[in-house]
Design a protein around this nucleic acid. Structure first.
Lengths: 340, 340
DNA sequence: GTGAAAGCGCTAACAA
DNA sequence: TTGTTAGCGCTTTCAC
């Protein structure tokens, strides 16, 4: 079986010659610019299709000095980050920008990913996720607009879009207390973005409800394994708490399944609340009560900042904070179960 | 707070002027080409660092007529595909190619993703995952080398790297039968890549073990929900099978958790086997016995095909089949539990 | 409404 | 070892 080797791809010139017009006209047609008559437009389009012509991005970028590309730094292993990236596509398209993915993968550090984006002449970079090399991002922000989704950075010198994490944690605690819980444990996210605020919110809400002596925080790190490990810790003690607020959905997942496999009923014996309202939370058999961070809105705001910088000449940085919301599902109920 | 606006980025010319040599020399230095003296090399490197110079990819591609980029078509929502993509990075780097991600996201069809890759002058495309628009891929393969990871395509006209899925399914069944199981149900992957072969392998192995009348296949589609749904079907019947072989790990996950939440012990009452040996299977609290498809080796072979086409002038297509292996973990044991 | 010409930043051929 | 020259495919400016 054979397949064609490398063939010279048709250029704008080829199309122009084929139609019998100038290259300029073909260019105008392809950019949907005003000028060409309807007739010319159609002839050009037809000829291009016939020849299999496709504009060359490299040449466009080089000549126009604009790439119309926004880079995105993220990790494909994080469901929440993936959801956010996917939400960026329609928004970017609406603003006539293309998304260039800069995945952070093990064995290829952030520096390399950033170099790639810069080499491709991205005009701005949107950074998603906790635990990035912040110093480097602050440095990067001096070269082009950077929007960090998740946390404030560099004392406000870098644009940020983030959820009100402290508020989100309070929503979770309020919900649980409203159901009658008092013994509420928090499995935290360590030093990751947002984790400190969620810890703070948990503490504040517990105190506000007069549950200061019930405050208990187990160390975690936003992964399934940290949730599972927290569950094992709790299972080894004399009594389980009646509710657990996990730092994110992945953590809640590990926690929930580990409890259930140990014979502990969720939510009857222990209620579980996650954070992010990601794909995981919505799985029918987990049905996790979670704190929602609206990815579509985050994407929208992040892009608005980019566009204001790039196309509207804004030069001051912004810090946009979004209100999270509580999404009640089946992993929470009153202590002792719904029958009591 | 202010940040710099758009600044002209330094060019090779700027570096050359700064050092007092010709642009050519700078070019040679940056491409690590032979010619420049050690002294010149150092001066150039230093000046570049000083000016913050970085080669412009667009210009390089345009002039050299090579992008040294390989596009990857995949879905970020599939853990197995993500693992595979991550495995491609080190391999690509070793061959001096860059990976350009073409994510298939909801609301942006395959056509658009392919257009992006083609516009960026990818020299080849590696396609991962089941359920792609095959007609379009066959079409694409006439323009540049395409390697489909997962299934044979176009009657062998398109390069393929795939696991021996029928063999993998047989490994799963053999393992379960070896543990003493007879009542083994298969939740399949519908029409997705590999699913038909896995079904075939399951049937063949069951027959080989004289268990033809125990053959039972439930319809699925490689998602968690299909596993969960299959579990609910089984739970509604008079007796559970003693083992289930799921079409992939995601499906096995949904199945396992749904069973456990219904009070069914895994593996004591029902053993579960997944497929892919992805991140999910390795989670300590799932600890899923699975059929491993070695992503590193798949990545290696896929890239070897690309390089042979691009750099060694090969024109015939290849179909490489990898032997899967069984990874035994804690989700399988003898029927009735390990104590019997 | 259309066309000619210049040049984006780089590499490749050739000279020196 | 180094420099000169001519484009890669496109957009932009200016002229008609």
């Amino acid at each position: 079986m054979t397949t064609s080797g490398r063939v010279r791809r048709p250029t704008m010139r080829d199309v122009a010659t084929h139609v019998g017009v100038s290259q300029t006209l073909v260019s105008l047609v392809f950019r949907n610019a005003p000028g060409p008559s309807k007739e010319t437009r159609e002839k050009v389009i037809r000829a291009a299709a016939e020849l299999g012509y496709r504009p060359d991005t490299a040449a466009q970028v080089l000549r126009s000095n604009r790439s119309m590309r926004v880079g995105v730094l993220f990790s494909m292993q994080q469901p929440y980050e993936v959801d956010l990236v996917e939400a960026l596509y329609p928004v970017a398209k609406r603003h006539d920008y293309a998304v260039l993915l800069g995945a952070l993968v093990p064995g290829r550090d952030q520096r390399a990913a950033v170099e790639d984006l810069l080499g491709s002449r991205c005009e701005a970079v949107i950074v998603i996720g906790p635990g990035r090399d912040e110093h480097q991002l602050i440095e990067l922000a001096r070269q082009l607009p950077v929007v960090y989704i998740g946390r404030r950075l560099g004392g406000g010198t870098v644009n940020a879009v983030r959820g009100a994490d402290s508020r989100g944690a309070q929503l979770a605690v309020d919900h649980l207390v409203g159901l009658g819980h008092r013994d509420i444990v928090h499995v935290d996210g360590g030093s990751r973005a947002g984790a400190a605020d969620r810890r703070r919110g948990y503490r504040a809400a517990m105190r506000r409800h007069g549950l200061a002596e019930h405050i208990r925080i187990l160390a975690g790190d936003l992964t399934e394994e940290s949730g599972s490990s927290a569950a094992r810790t709790l299972l080894g003690e004399v009594a389980l708490p009646t509710a657990v607020f996990a730092a994110n959905d992945r953590c809640a997942h590990g926690l929930l399944v580990t409890l259930v496999r140990a014979g502990v009923a969720v939510p009857e014996q222990v209620s579980v609340v996650g954070y992010d309202d990601s794909r995981i939370a919505r799985l029918s058999y987990l049905d996790l009560t979670s704190i929602r961070q609206d990815v579509a809105e985050m994407a929208e705001l992040a892009f608005r900042i980019v566009v204001e910088r790039l196309d509207a000449g804004r030069t001051t940085s912004q810090d946009l904070v979004l209100a999270p919301t509580l999404v009640v599902r089946g992993s929470t109920t009153g202590p002792g179960g719904p029958l009591r």
